[in-house]
């Protein structure tokens, strides 16, 4: 009976995990549908199988799988560098990782994949949320690259890239990889603009910018973020104790407050109106809330002195 209950609870946990990381799952599948032909199969096949290998391995290896993979990968990179420097040395034996943009591109998508899979089976809520945010950072760039690839400005960028750095830097790369470089350039431009102007203008996915993009499946993504938020609340509900319905009332009020405040913030930040000071407005509000949260924390010391 106890086992059945824990199995049911586990199933619920995984369901809410899946809901929570649904935007990442979608971006991963969408990204892979474009990127798979441009990826190195010798890298992505073992990395894609890694979660399965990890779960089938003995405990000692299971706990250190990712550390081992990082060490092996770095050793292979070192071996490659070494073999280039001293081609006749017998130790290297021709094993290595090609140091190319394709490799980096493959590793980026594989990292996103690993974060999604590990988040799906994570036990702690903040591991799932942390994994989702990290995977969104990687997969969001691929999504932006796909959007940029389909934009009318991409051809201009290809021409410019060919003239300026294409001949020297990264060897032959695919169009999607070139679009990813374009996204990186835009991000760099956005940060530069933030530093020198105090606002950002060249965000890769910002619909209001001069190179306005058509974001594929944007409505679906909006829905998935909604599902993800329900997943966050549901995940905590599953994690909490069932007899504490009273406490869940508090969560309800928090969600209402969170939605209302963020709507006001987003409205005043002018995201939908195309103003450029959203970074500053959001930053100020975030800092205010962090200060209030921290101050309220001081009101509740961990333990009071003994009462007489």
């Amino acid at each position: 009976m106890e086992t059945e209950r824990s199995e049911a609870s586990k199933a619920k946990t995984y369901l809410f995990n899946a809901m929570l990381i649904s935007p990442s799952i979608f971006l991963l599948l969408f990204g892979l549908s474009y990127a798979l032909p441009d990826m190195n199969p010798y890298i992505y096949i073992p990395l894609f199988l890694l979660p399965l290998i990890k779960r089938l391995s003995p405990k000692l290896i299971r706990l250190n799988t990712y550390r081992l993979v990082v060490i092996i990968f770095l050793l292979l990179v070192l071996d490659t560098i070494f073999s280039r420097l001293a081609p006749n040395t017998p130790i290297v034996g021709g094993i290595g990782v090609p140091i190319t943009f394709t490799t980096m591109f493959t590793v980026e998508i594989c990292l996103g994949y690993l974060l999604v899979v590990e988040s799906l089976f994570a036990n702690k809520p903040y591991h799932v949320i942390g994994g989702m945010i990290a995977s969104l950072a990687l997969l969001g760039e691929i999504y932006a690259a796909i959007a940029f690839l389909n934009s009318p400005y991409f051809n201009e960028f290809v021409t410019g890239y060919g003239i300026v750095i294409g001949k020297f830097a990264l060897g032959s790369i695919s169009r999607l990889q070139m679009a990813l470089i374009g996204v990186a350039v835009l991000e760099f431009a956005a940060i530069t603009s933030l530093i020198f102007n105090g606002f950002m203008t060249f965000m890769p996915l910002y619909g209001g910018s001069p190179h306005s993009l058509v974001l594929p499946y944007s409505r679906l993504l909006l829905g998935l973020f909604g599902v993800s938020f329900i997943g966050v609340v549901g995940r905590f509900y599953v994690d909490g104790e069932k007899d504490e319905t009273f406490r869940l009332e508090g969560l309800f009020y928090s969600v209402i407050m969170g939605v209302v405040i963020s709507s006001i913030v987003v409205y005043f930040a002018g995201l939908f109106q195309g103003l450029d000071y959203q970074f500053m407005v959001i930053s100020i509000l975030v800092i205010i809330f962090l200060i209030i949260s921290s101050a309220s924390s001081r009101l509740t010391p961990k333990a009071l002195k003994l009462e007489e």
């Binding site: 935007p23 969001g140 956005a190 940060i191 973020f225 407050m257 969170g258 939605v259 405040i261 975030v286």
Partner: peptide, 17 residues
């Protein structure tokens, strides 16, 4: 940084909640 409006909205709701 990405200019991803929906993501900003989602993250804001998460933070303020």
């Amino acid at each position: 940084l990405l200019g991803f409006t929906y993501f900003i909205l989602f993250a804001s709701i998460l933070f303020f909640t």
